[in-house]
């Protein structure tokens, strides 16, 4: 139980660090002075101290939505697969609930974007709606395929099963699913090439556009939500698609797990450096690839058994 709680705390703490890490790697590769890994915490602290400016045009939604954006993600943290064997995990939650929770968070984020009557907010919401509508089927197919291979639809149980019996006979579909999931990770977290979290240029914004009018604590909540979401995806990727290192004791296992998370972050950073942001109407092509791989993975598993 201690392991369970400390895992959650660890993930919470890691969340801002991972995002800062990506930023730092990118800056480093671009010959800039990298930001500190603790920049996330600094920003968080700064935002907490600020007063909150609320838009005159906004309604009660602006005051409530930030909490509802964050809370499903926090709840989702509790349901992730364990990082070490034998550790406590919640076995009774399946992947649909998880995707549902993520979608709930996105739902309120999009409403938040529409609330302040700003044209940017609407634009961001519209684009987010577009992207997440296409992410949804890929996500479900991927998860379906993985849980088939893991032999359980429960997300925690699936992680454990995969670690215990890696489905060697299904490596092909496993690989497809992994590719699909990775693309989804990028798309859902608003990373390049789907979205650029760093600019505030209207042509490229998705996530940032929605929260342009959010300040202070509310912004802190939203930023936290973004980092938690990344950590959820990264850890899901780590436990479902890199299922090793769980046999160790808790501490080494946790080390390996954190390493995996950083590896995922590094991969994301490398992609971000090496690709340009896609035009919005090119994004479906990328998501199309994800859908196709998800489908392929399922069909290969189903039909060929490979």
């Amino acid at each position: 139980m201690i392991g369970y709680v400390s895992t959650i705390v660890l993930l919470l703490l890691l969340a801002p660090i991972l995002l800062s890490f990506i930023k730092a790697v990118k800056m480093w590769l671009l010959y800039k002075r990298p930001v500190s890994l603790l920049q996330g915490f600094r920003d968080f602290g700064k935002l907490l101290r600020k007063e909150t400016v609320v838009s005159e045009e906004a309604s009660a939604m602006t005051r409530i939505a930030p909490f509802l954006v964050l809370s499903p993600l926090l709840v989702a943290l509790f349901y992730l697969p364990p990082i070490a064997k034998g550790a406590y995990y919640v076995s009774f939650v399946d992947a649909f609930t998880l995707t549902g929770l993520l979608a709930l968070s996105t739902f309120f984020l999009m409403l938040l974007g529409l609330d302040s009557a700003s044209s940017f907010g609407g634009m961001g919401s519209s684009r987010e709606a577009f992207i997440s509508a296409l992410v949804e089927p890929a996500m479900i197919l991927t998860i379906f395929s993985v849980s088939m291979m893991a032999g359980d639809l429960g997300i925690g149980q699936a992680g454990v099963n995969l670690a215990e019996h890696f489905p060697r006979e299904h490596t092909a579909s496993f690989l497809f699913a992994a590719i699909s999931f990775f693309i989804l990770l990028i798309a859902e977290n608003g990373r390049i090439p789907v979205d650029n979290p760093e600019t505030h240029l209207e042509l490229t914004m998705v996530h940032e556009a929605m929260i342009l009018d959010i300040t202070g604590v509310y912004l802190a909540l939203i930023e936290t939500a973004a980092s938690v979401k990344f950590v959820i995806f990264a850890s899901l990727f780590a436990s479902l698609f890199l299922p090793f290192g769980m046999e160790e004791a808790w501490l080494p296992a946790a080390m390996i797990f954190v390493g995996k998370l950083f590896a995922v972050a590094l991969a994301v950073a490398l992609i971000e450096v090496n690709t340009a942001k896609l035009r919005l109407f090119k994004v479906p092509n990328l998501l199309g690839i994800a859908i196709v791989f998800a489908f392929l993975s399922l069909i290969t598993y189903y039909v060929l058994g490979a």
Partner: peptide
Amino acid sequence: FALALTGGLAIACFVKAYGITFLG
């Protein structure tokens, strides 16, 4: 696939319906 896509689009649709009607 159809059901999942439906789910995603339904979310988009109700964000639209709710957001445009009640917010802003």
